[in-house]
Simulated assay, not measured.
Amino acid sequence: MLYAVFMSATLPPFPRSQDPSGEDELLQLSSPEDEPCLRADAARNRARLLEAATRLIAEHGVDGVTMEAVAAAAEVGKGTVFRRFGDRTGLLMALLDHSSRTLQADFLGGPPPLGPGAPALDRLRAFGVAVLYRSAEQLDLQLAAQREPTRRYAHPTVRGLALHVTVLLRQIVPDADCDLLALTLLSYLDPALIHHLTRDCGMPMERLERGWTDLVARVTATAPPA
Score class of each variant (00 low, 15 high):
S17M: 03
Q18G: 06
A4I: 14
A42Y: 03
N45T: 06
P12H: 08
M67T: 10
T66V: 05
E25N: 11
A40Y: 12
R39C: 09
I57K: 06
R16A: 14
D41C: 03
C37L: 12
S8P: 05
A52Q: 04
G22T: 03
P32R: 05
S8L: 06
C37G: 07
L49V: 00
R46I: 00
L29K: 00
R39K: 10
V62L: 04
L26H: 02
V62H: 05
G22Q: 06
A47F: 06
P15D: 03
D24Q: 10
A4G: 13
I57D: 05
V62N: 04
P15G: 03
V65N: 00
D34G: 01
A47E: 15
L29T: 07
V62F: 05
A42M: 03
A42W: 03
L26G: 09
L49Q: 09
S30F: 08
V65C: 01
D19L: 10
A53D: 07
R55A: 08
V62C: 04
E59D: 10
I57E: 11
A4H: 15
R16E: 09
F14H: 10
A53T: 02
T10H: 10
F14I: 06
D34P: 00
A53Y: 01
S21C: 11
A42F: 02
G64A: 04
A9I: 07
P12T: 10
R39Q: 13
H60L: 06
S17L: 04
P20C: 09
R39A: 14
L49M: 15
P13H: 06
R44N: 13
Q28T: 11
G22M: 09
T54R: 14
S30D: 07
E51L: 12
V65A: 01
L38G: 04
G22C: 08
A53H: 02
G61H: 02
D34C: 05
L50C: 05
E35Q: 15
A4N: 13
P13D: 14
A58Y: 04
D19Q: 11
E33F: 04
E35Y: 14
L50I: 07
S31K: 10
G22V: 02
L29C: 12
M7S: 03
D41K: 06
D63K: 09
A58N: 09
L27D: 00
H60K: 14
P20Q: 08
D41N: 11
T54C: 11
E59N: 07
P15L: 03
P20V: 07
R55N: 03
R46D: 04
R16V: 09
T10R: 15
E23I: 13
A58R: 11
A4S: 15
S31A: 12
A4Q: 15
A58H: 08
F6I: 12
G64M: 01
A53M: 01
L49T: 00
M67A: 10
Q28I: 13
L38E: 09
D63F: 00
A4C: 13
F14T: 02
S31C: 04
F6G: 04
E35S: 12
P12F: 07
M67W: 00
R39Y: 05
D63N: 11
R55C: 04
Q18R: 14
P20R: 06
L38I: 08
P13G: 05
L11T: 12
D41S: 13
S21G: 14
E23Y: 12
P15Q: 01
V62R: 02
G22K: 04
M7H: 03
R46C: 02
R46K: 07
G64T: 01
R39F: 00
M7W: 02
S17Q: 05
C37A: 10
T54S: 14
